[in-house]
Structure formats: structure tokens, C-alpha cells
């Protein structure tokens, strides 16, 4: 009997040493049951106590492993190795290597190994690559969603929209990809329909039904005229086309040449005399500058994207 118990214990120890923790536990439980049901064994309580302790240690090891397995951040050096090894374009370097294609493959590998921050840096750089900008944008969305940064993903999408970074066809493609991804991840697809994220994304992520309805009901504005009644910059009013609209927030783009206008329209500035041109009529009202962003890339690089919240229309 002793020999049998020792044999199974030996197996349990070996499985443990091989990292086969569950198999080791099974062996220990086998002995535990055997001892419990056998009255002829001496020092039964002591033996059972010892085995229970061994099982506890094993369980702690399993938990520790599961916890540690989730920490997958690797060093920049390792990320470089991953990029090189999983990019076939790198392997052919010296011939007709497409550096952007290689960078893209490397970035995708980083993403697949869960190195989201490093992958994001790579994809961001690739946004300026004509050939790979759309796939990079899609992967940026994917990275952010994987990191549970859905708000940031929506903001990025609308930033590309307002900055006219992509053509409308490309944007439709990215939007469709994002919608599918959201559906797959059981996220709120309406975020992309209502445009939540353009103003203050962290507040807008849980848009109430009332707010959604307000967005749906708001009239389309195609352009605006701003009169500077006080402290006028120029004698004439300025007219600007609306590049994007989400509910009562409109986005306009101001050329980098219009320094005076850019300086004047600071975030928080209240515009008392604004004409809102819609396809059906012209409305007079007021508005507040809610965001101002310098466009960093694309054909409108250097220009400013301005968000104006429409009031009293």
C-alpha cells in the first residue's frame, strides 16, 4: 500500500516539475481519496494534512501562472525582433523591399502578440503612407478597441472625418469596418452614427436617448456666417463651409492663412451673431467654440479644425 502511495506521489512530483500542474493535482486527489476511504492506513490525518497542503501549493501556482500570463508587455528590443521575424518584406530587404509594407507586417505582428502600444505607434506612422493609410487606420481602431479604449477609437474616427484626412470612400470603408468590429465586440454601434466623441467623448459615450433624439432632430447646416459685432477683426463677416456635423455641433476648417480668425476663435469664445445656412432656410443664432485642433497631417495639414456648438437657433 505504501509503495503504491509513494509511486503516485512520485508521479505527482514529476508532473509538477514538468509544469503539468493539473495532472499533478489529479494524482494528489487520487491519493487523498484513497487514504480517506482506507481505514488501515496509519497517521491518516497527518497524511491528509500534508496532501491538502501540497494541493494548495499547486493551486497557488496555477493562479500565479494565470495571473502572470496576462502580463505580456515586452521590451522595445523584443518588439524589434518580433517585427523583423514576422515581416517577410524585411527578409527580402536589399532587393525591392517595400519598407512601408514591412513596417505594416511588423506592426500587425506586434498587434497579434498583444503589444498594442507599440503597434499603435507603428500604425500612426503608417497613416501617412498612401498605400497603407486605410489599413493602418483600421488597425488603429482595432488596437484601441482591444485596449478597451472605445471612446478614443470613436474620437480618432471623427477626427479623421473632420480633418478630411481620408476621402469619403475611404472613410466609408473605415466606418464599415469599425461598425462590424463594434458589432462583433458587442459595443454600441450607434456611437458612430451619432458622432459621439467629437466634443467631449468621455461624457458622450453613454448618450441618453434624449440626446440621441436631439441629434437626430437637429437640422442640417451646410455653412455659417459669423459677424463679429464687437471687436471686429475685419469689416466684413466671414463665411465658412461646414465639414461635418454631429447634432448641434458643427465642424469647420479654417485655413492656416487666416491667422486673425484663428487667433480670435479661441475655445470657449461665445459668438453672438451667427447665420446658419441650411438647405431649407437661413437661421440666425449664436454659438460657442467648443474645440480647436491643428490638423497634423493630410492635405489640410497646418489648417485648423474648429467645433462650434449651435445655440439659440
Amino acid at each position: 500500500m505504501n509503495k503504491m502511495i509513494k509511486g503516485i506521489l512520485k508521479q505527482a512530483e514529476l508532473y509538477k516539475s514538468q509544469g503539468l500542474l493539473k495532472e499533478a493535482e489529479q494524482q494528489l486527489k487520487k491519493i487523498e481519496t484513497f487514504i480517506q476511504t482506507n481505514d488501515k492506513i496509519k497517521n491518516k490525518e497527518k497524511l491528509l494534512k500534508g496532501i491538502a497542503y501540497k494541493i494548495k501549493v499547486l493551486n497557488d501556482d496555477v493562479k500565479k501562472f494565470e495571473k502572470e500570463s496576462k502580463k505580456t508587455e515586452t521590451s522595445p528590443g523584443v518588439n524589434k525582433i518580433i517585427k523583423n521575424l514576422f515581416s517577410t518584406a524585411f527578409a527580402t530587404e536589399g532587393d525591392e523591399a517595400d519598407k512601408d509594407a514591412a513596417q505594416l507586417e511588423g506592426a500587425i505582428a506586434l498587434f497579434k502578440f498583444g503589444q498594442f502600444d507599440s503597434a499603435l505607434t507603428e500604425f500612426d506612422q503608417l497613416l501617412n503612407s498612401e498605400k497603407h493609410s486605410v489599413i493602418s487606420a483600421k488597425n488603429i481602431i482595432k488596437c484601441l478597441v482591444e485596449q478597451d479604449k472605445v471612446n478614443t477609437a470613436v474620437t480618432r474616427f471623427f477626427k479623421w472625418h473632420t480633418e478630411s484626412f481620408f476621402s469619403s470612400e475611404q472613410l466609408t470603408d473605415i466606418r464599415s469596418f469599425t461598425e462590424n468590429l463594434f458589432e462583433k465586440k458587442k459595443l454600441d454601434r450607434d456611437l458612430l452614427l451619432t458622432g459621439a466623441g467629437i466634443d467631449n467623448i468621455s461624457n458622450n459615450i453613454d448618450c441618453s436617448e434624449k440626446e440621441d433624439k436631439e441629434y437626430e432632430d437637429f437640422i442640417d447646416i451646410s455653412s455659417i456666417g459669423i459677424s463679429f459685432s464687437e471687436n471686429a477683426i475685419t469689416n466684413e463677416d466671414i463665411e465658412l463651409d461646414v465639414s461635418f456635423q454631429t447634432g448641434n455641433v458643427i465642424s469647420i476648417i479654417i485655413s492656416s492663412k487666416d491667422n486673425q480668425v484663428i487667433d480670435k476663435l479661441k475655445v470657449g469664445v461665445k459668438l453672438e451673431n451667427v447665420q446658419y445656412y441650411s438647405p431649407v432656410a437661413i437661421f440666425k443664432g449664436s454659438g460657442t467654440v467648443s474645440a480647436k485642433t491643428k490638423i497634423q497631417s493630410g492635405p489640410k495639414k497646418g489648417d485648423y479644425s474648429l467645433d462650434i456648438k449651435v445655440e439659440n437657433m
Binding site: 509544469g19 501562472f65 502572470e68 500570463s69 505580456t72 515586452t74 523584443v78 525582433i81 518580433i82 502578440f113
Partner: peptide, 8 residues
């Protein structure tokens, strides 16, 4: 050896 936990 890229990212090993113990010897896994």
C-alpha cells in the same frame, strides 16, 4: 526566447 513565464 520571447516572453516566457517560468519555463513556459
Amino acid at each position: 526566447s520571447i516572453n516566457t513565464e517560468g519555463d513556459r
